[in-house]
């Protein structure tokens, strides 16, 4: 995409709130005291929301997108089932978006995070940090290599286990497209039991976070592949001079 094209794009489509979790989701206990009680105040978007930080591949180091290798020396490798996670980033107009920074973090194969506040008893993997990032190419394509994270129990007042998941932080081309979400794995029976996954009420919407096993992209004798396409908010294609800034 021509860079000047991004700059000249218009405001975003209003967010379809039915696709997203509500702020207060009592089955997920942490939301009780962290959910605003007042309704969000709708505003007409301005340059402050339409613009946003954009990162190119120049920020990346050699192993940023290989979590099996980026926390150990060259002859070592993270423990677990090796997988490729890949897909394209689109906007709601089906247009692919280049230069989208994707940051990922996850538990190790045993379900343990390399984080001081994770108290789960599963062992740390000395070869796995759990942090990676990549940037979409000119066709909106991204991929990274990692190990399949384990499920883990978490404190929520009951016998709650998180399904295997990878946390995603995604930058579009505008601050209003900023999104943090989680990717799940096709066929995981824990998804439908998970209070966090089920903060999303619409099953079709939740299903868009479930990566599909993709045998076509498997690397022989190395890694299976999962496909996860990411859709960000779309923009009106032209600036409506009078509507863009309201009044």
């Amino acid at each position: 995409m021509d860079k000047s094209d991004m700059r000249s794009q218009g405001p975003l489509y209003p967010r379809d709130k039915t696709l997203h979790p509500k702020a207060l989701t009592p089955d997920y206990k942490s939301s009780l005291f962290r959910s605003p009680k007042m309704a969000l105040v709708p505003v007409n978007t301005t340059m402050s929301e339409i613009s946003g930080p954009v990162f190119g591949p120049n920020i990346l180091g050699e192993f940023d997108s290989d979590l099996t290798k980026n926390y150990c020396s060259a002859e070592q490798m993270a423990i677990g089932e090796q997988i490729i996670v890949h897909g394209k980033v689109f906007d709601e107009n089906s247009k692919t978006i280049p230069n989208v920074l994707i940051e990922v973090w996850q538990a190790n194969a045993g379900g343990r995070y390399r984080h001081f506040s994770d108290s789960y008893k599963a062992p740390l993997d000395p070869y796995f940090g759990g942090c990676g990032r990549c940037v979409t190419d000119q066709n909106g394509y991204y991929s990274f290599k990692t190990i399949r994270p384990g499920a883990y129990p978490w404190p929520n007042g009951g016998n709650n286990w998180r399904p295997s998941h990878i946390h995603f932080s995604i930058f579009g081309t505008s601050f209003a497209q900023r999104l943090i979400t989680q990717m799940y794995f096709e066929g995981d029976p824990l998804i439908k039991l998970c209070p966090i996954a089920n903060t999303i009420e619409d099953p079709a919407s939740l299903n868009t976070l479930v990566a599909q096993l993709d045998m076509k992209r498997t690397i022989h004798m190395d890694a299976r592949a999962y496909q996860f396409n990411i859709i960000l908010r779309g923009r009106f294609s032209t600036i409506f001079e009078n509507k863009m800034d309201g009044n």
């Binding site: 696709l19 903060t199 976070l209 960000l232």
Partner: peptide, 8 residues
């Protein structure tokens, strides 16, 4: 298309 949903 529809935006993918947020998660915490």
């Amino acid at each position: 298309l529809k935006e993918i949903p947020s998660q915490t």
